[in-house]
Design a protein around this nucleic acid. Structure first.
Lengths: 197, 197
DNA sequence: TACTATATTACTAAAAAAGTAACATTATTA
DNA sequence: TAATAATGTTACTTTTTTAGTAATATAGTA
């Protein structure tokens, strides 16, 4: 099925579905609801998408593609590596990145193995991208040669979790303060350092 | 039906339902889901509540009762009337008050006239309370004698909407700034004033 | 032990959601 | 304008989900 992706109706549906899925996950949202909100008849829907799952895949595609682009663009900037990491942590804090918690939970809770596999696939892809970027950074001398990129990845994931921790946030005046602290720790550990470049 | 409100299960159900309703409204949430999350069997559920709607009423009861108490407590404080208004506006901004947008929307969208009437009822009650408080304040000379309490109420509702307006918020460094501005405007209009007590 | 609260299983009935066919309407464009 | 494509309407059928119940089992407790 390859509908006319230029049709305005097509975009209305995608946009509406995206909003609803974002808020409630996929299973709680009905095709009828999407159609009504998008001001589109059910027949139009079924002419453009096989079913809700296929629609969801398309929506996720867009979501992922977008955040992937964003990431690449960010990494391509001519700014210090530390700053890039700060931005990654910041994205995580904003919750801007990729996909809402609600949506992710729903996909994992409610079976639908197709979607799970789909997500895993994307995860793998962005993970590889990131690992490459890390290796590259290592080559350029931006991080210790004696640390494994995969370990860095693991650490970064943990760190980004810190940043959404309520209790931790409370210790700082602004989220930015915490983000800086985390980023600094990430780079320099807790040792007093002579040169922080 | 008057279940054993002391039973831990009863509270688990209420708590779980409250969270789920808050996030998704009532219609999107199923009894099964509530039971599973609350780690309670369906039979236990139906021994305690007639059905989802009755549960919802109980949840709303608690929600409203709480926010009503909060309001009364706030009004009972020995602080200037201006400060009380500021707090009301602030509550609105925080979204702490009463009931989530999601939940309210759901109740009004999906028929179920029982719930609508129920909400209207509560609205009426808190409205009356507020009108009384206003009349009282007027008697005490805290606001112009020549203004109608009902008009003040109408204004206040409009004002609290301002405070959640994105574009307006952007003009201020902090939400508090906007809240203060709105409150001040509420009390003093735009005229330059000699004494702002 | 007897009582109470709760869980389990396995249903049925009712409601909601998915999905489709046939035909009508509106736009678009050759 | 005639033809074509896109979309809407209605009115279904089928499938899936949810609600709700009955009967029986189990665990804790007075």
């Amino acid at each position: 099925m390859q509908p006319n992706t230029k049709s305005p109706k097509y975009h209305q549906i995608l946009q509406t579905a995206r909003n609803l899925f974002w808020k409630h996950g996929i299973s709680r949202v009905t095709v009828d609801e999407i159609c009504t909100e998008a001001a589109v008849s059910k027949m139009t829907f079924y002419r453009m998408f096989d079913n809700k799952i296929e629609l969801a895949k398309t929506v996720l595609d867009h979501l992922f593609e977008e955040s992937f682009q964003k990431y690449r663009k960010m990494m391509a900037q001519d700014i210090p590596f530390t700053e890039k990491i700060r931005q990654i942590v910041h994205l995580k804090f904003e919750g801007t990145q990729q996909i809402s918690q609600e949506l992710l939970l729903d996909i994992y809770k409610n079976q639908e193995p197709a979607l799970k596999a789909y997500i895993e696939n994307w995860k793998q892809r962005s993970l590889n991208q990131f690992l490459n970027d890390l290796a590259e950074a290592q080559r350029k001398g931006w991080l210790r040669k004696d640390i494994q990129p995969a370990f860095v990845l693991y650490l970064l994931n943990k760190m980004t979790d810190f940043v959404t921790d309520e209790k931790l946030l409370a210790l700082y005046q602004t989220p930015q303060g915490l983000i800086m602290e985390v980023t600094n720790f990430f780079f320099y550990g807790i040792s007093p350092n002579d040169a922080n470049s």
